[in-house]
């Protein structure tokens, strides 16, 4: 066990991925000498060279498009998109090419490309630096979409993503980059659950709270606070957004009879909507209340002086939990 920040855990996981396969590459803006604006790739270019940790020109479509070409030649690129709001220039390459090329080829090509995206708000940033676009990718067949919530998952999930023969959109909670936790670097992947499996963060009996990424910590805190009020919250970190681990979700909701989905992303058309529909369909007779969603309002991300009102926090989560007892 080692205590690592989430950023450092990703760094160690990426190091393992580079060590384990000479075809693995890291590419992106400022990932080399600088080590990335969040230092996730710190020191990797020094140790693995400029051919494997590549500072690219400043154009996101070019990063992903050349990654597709490298993958066709047998490489396994891990691309960094510097901020969530900058993924859109690459959206066409991701959605129209990366996600569809295997299908187009009737299974003859593999696209083992990972696209890392720091996402979410709460850091007082300017526009385009606080967004949560995960639903757009989860809506796209042909992609695996995951989000890590803490250092331990960050360490193993980035390695699992690097081993995947399918494209993986890998969301990293940027405001949690400096959170510290114990990471089992010795046990590693051998003891880690698969990347597409949800994880019960806190067991409970009264209500199921589903979350991912930056909201995992917030929901964990909500569970502690609720316990003081005599409510037992089961917190589940979805981890995989496409596909969803519905088995774990349904089992919990059938037990608790109540479900709240929490994310920073806009509620309309979001992951919570998908989860709510599936839970309603499969757990209808177990539900004591409608599935509630806690997330962003249907506005663009506001200027940062307002973001604390925009982002879900402990009180809004507990408020939703309370409301599930009002039916």
């Amino acid at each position: 066990m080692t205590t690592l920040t989430l950023s450092r855990a990703l760094n160690e996981g990426l190091r393992k991925a580079l060590e384990n396969n000479p075809k693995t590459l890291i590419m992106g803006e400022d990932v080399g000498k600088l080590g990335g604006v969040f230092r996730v790739t710190d020191g990797l270019q020094k140790d693995f060279g400029e051919a494997r940790v590549v500072d690219t020109p400043l154009a996101e479509s070019g990063i992903v498009g050349t990654a597709v070409g490298l993958a066709l030649r047998g490489y396994r690129p891990i691309c960094e998109i510097q901020f969530d709001g900058f993924v859109f220039p690459a959206f066409d390459q991701i959605v129209s090419q990366l996600a569809k090329m295997r299908y187009r080829s009737l299974g003859s090509v593999r696209l083992p490309v990972v696209i890392r995206i720091p996402f979410g708000g709460g850091i007082g940033a300017v526009e385009h630096h606080s967004e949560s676009p995960e639903a757009l990718f989860a809506h796209t067949p042909g992609l695996r979409v995951v989000a890590c919530g803490g250092p331990a998952d960050a360490y193993t999930m980035i390695q699992q993503a690097a081993l995947s023969d399918d494209p993986v959109i890998f969301f990293e909670p940027k405001r949690r980059y400096w959170d510290k936790a114990e990471v089992d670097t010795d046990g590693g992947l051998a003891v880690a659950p698969p990347m597409d499996q949800a994880r019960i963060v806190a067991a409970g009996t009264d209500v199921t709270v589903l979350c991912y990424g930056p909201m995992v910590r917030t929901c964990g805190e909500a569970a502690v606070a609720a316990r003081e009020e005599g409510r037992s919250i089961e917190v589940i970190d979805l981890r995989s957004l496409a596909p969803l681990d519905t088995g774990t979700i349904f089992e919990s909701v059938r037990k608790t009879g109540r479900c709240v989905v929490v994310h920073e992303a806009v509620v309309t058309g979001g992951i919570g909507a998908e989860v709510a529909a599936r839970v309603t369909q499969e757990c209808f007779y177990s539900l004591e209340a409608p599935v509630l969603r806690v997330g962003a309002y249907s506005t663009p991300y506001p200027p940062s002086r307002m973001e604390e009102y925009y982002l879900p926090d402990l009180d809004r989560i507990l408020d939703a939990v309370d409301r599930t007892f009002g039916y």
């Binding site: 051919a51 050349t66 070409g69 490298l70 030649r73 066409d92 390459q93 129209s96 090419q97």
Partner: peptide
């Protein structure tokens, strides 16, 4: 494979060429 979206394949060719270099 044939690429229908205009121009996308220019990047794929370039990436593939970078693989040849490596």
């Amino acid at each position: 494979l044939y690429t229908i979206v205009i121009g996308s394949q220019a990047l794929h060719a370039t990436g593939y060429a970078m693989g040849i270099q490596r």
